Structure formats: structure tokens, C-alpha cells
Simulated assay, not measured.
Amino acid sequence: MTKNWVAAVEQAANNIRKRVLGLTIKQNGCYLSQALSSAEILSTLYLKSLNLGPSEAAFVPGAFAGVPGTPNGHPAGHGGRYNGPGNGDWDQFIISPAHYAVVIYAALVEAGRLSEDCFDSFNTDGSTMEMIGAEHSPGFVMTTGSFGQALSQAGGVALGRRLKNETGQVVVFLSDGEFEEGQTWEAIQCLAHHKLDNVKVIADVNGQQVDGLTKDVMNIEPLESKIRAFGGSVCVINGHDPVAIDEALGQSEAGKPHVVLCYTETDRGIPLLTPRKPHLHYVRFHDDAEVQAFREFHAAM
């Protein structure tokens, strides 16, 4: 049984990488490295670990009919409906880093919650398939930025769920750059103070940000001991190991928010990107020869 779901997750992760690479080639630019680092994390969550109800949203999302935010400009419902109802016994899944939107969409396709044809409208005028996700984007429960605000929002959701005696978990996906934000640490401290052990955080620790290596721009380590000092429980794992991801989510401590630190690689599965490290925050191609090399690699995936 374990072997079956692991194989499914690994195939989904490979499909995510291939789909996002294809989109990067087509548009000559996308958040590709985030897909490479988080593919196993999101595949494991959607295909195995999360307890999500059936999608309540259209398989093909609607476009904006007018200016976003106006009564006539918002498509029916919000992006969180793709994750199911998120109340009662169901988990609520909150995406924090909005620039991971393309990976979320690809994971929703692998989970059978979103049409793969939707990528034809990715990042085009009027489409809800935006490059930077917000509350109307498939898979996004709420707008979580500028940056680093989702964990605070999750605390409010988790407290409300506890007051209503709901058994479902609040699961938050973070990027490691958010540990540079003071609000993230205030949120962990607050979650611990209120003993909100119905909150689980899974972080993509890929060590990269827009200006280079995180350790050079703003060192956040040692994350494990810092999180424990602020009152959380922690697991440190290889973020490309589906079994480790699934098991770590279940190793929480009573009365504490639980954080899974998934250490990952930003060139995972695409060695052509390795010479560019650590400048992979947003991938564009330099010339036609490079585009052709990536096309050939994509065709062989």
C-alpha cells in the first residue's frame, strides 16, 4: 500500500516539474525553481496527507468579468473552494507564498481538482490563473501578503475552529524566506501561547531568495532550535522524500503548533539549472540556444 501511494506522489511530482518547465519555456519566464523544490511536498499533501473534502469549485475556473474586487468583477466563489469546504472534520489548507501559485495549480491538476487546460490562460489578462496567487486563485483560501502573514491568519482560523469543536487541522504551506519576517515568529509564539496544536506548518527550506542564498542575505538558521524556543514542535526532513513528509506531519506534540522543515533543492530534476545557482528565484532564458537545450530536456522528461 505504501509503495503504491509513494509511486503516485513521485509521478505527480515529476509531472509538476515537467508542466512548469514547459510553461517557463512557453512564456520565457516563470517561478520554476519553486516547483522543483516543492513538488514532492505539495504532491504528498494533496495525494496523501491532507484530509480534504471534494472540490466545490468549477473544474475550469471562471475569468474576471470586470475589475477584480468589484461586485461584477469577481468570479463565483474563491480559490479555497478547490481544497474543499475546510470545516468540520476536513482540513483547511492555507498557502502562504503567493509566488508559488503555478506549483499550486499544477498540484491541483495532479489531484484531479483542476483542468490542465487552464494553463492556456495562465498569467493572461482577465484570468484567475494569476502568476501571484490571491483569494480568487485556485487553491488559495486568502490573500496572504505582502509576505509572511499567513501564519497569523491561520492562528485566527485555528482558534475559531477550536471554539466550534471542529476536528479538522489547519495546515499552512510556507517558504523559508518567511522566517526572515518578524510576524512569522510572533505568530509561532502566539500559536504556542494559545496551545493551538491544530496548526501544522510545512516549510519549503530551499535556501534561496531573490538576491541569492538566504544564508548570505539574511541568515535564518538554526531554524529548528529557534522554533522550539518559540514554543513549537519541529521535524527536520528531506523535502523530496514523500514518506518522510507524511510521517513528519503526524509527529506533533500536544499543545504545540507543529512545524515540518523540508530541506530541498532548487534544481531538483533539472541539472541544466545547476550552473545558475543560487540565482534561480525567477527563471528566464538567455538566448535561443539555451531555449533549445531546455526544450530538448523537456521533451525527454
Rank of each mutant, 00 (worst) to 15 (best):
R295W: 02
I95K: 01
Y100W: 14
L151F: 05
Y82F: 12
D267T: 14
E290F: 08
D246R: 10
D120Q: 11
G133C: 07
H99E: 08
F59N: 00
M129F: 00
D125G: 07
D117S: 15
S252T: 10
R284H: 11
I237K: 01
V172L: 11
M218L: 15
P242Q: 05
V259L: 14
A192M: 10
E180F: 02
K3I: 12
E181C: 10
K18H: 13
S33K: 06
V60K: 09
L108M: 01
S175K: 02
L213W: 11
V67T: 13
T144I: 04
C118T: 14
V210C: 13
I95L: 13
R17E: 04
V236W: 00
F59H: 06
F173E: 07
A150N: 01
F285L: 09
T24Q: 05
L42N: 08
G231S: 02
N72V: 14
K226M: 11
F122C: 05
I245R: 05
S225F: 06
G62H: 11
V60Q: 07
L114T: 02
L223H: 09
F59Y: 15
I132C: 10
T167K: 15
A248D: 04
L45Y: 01
L191K: 05
Y105W: 07
C235E: 15
K277N: 04
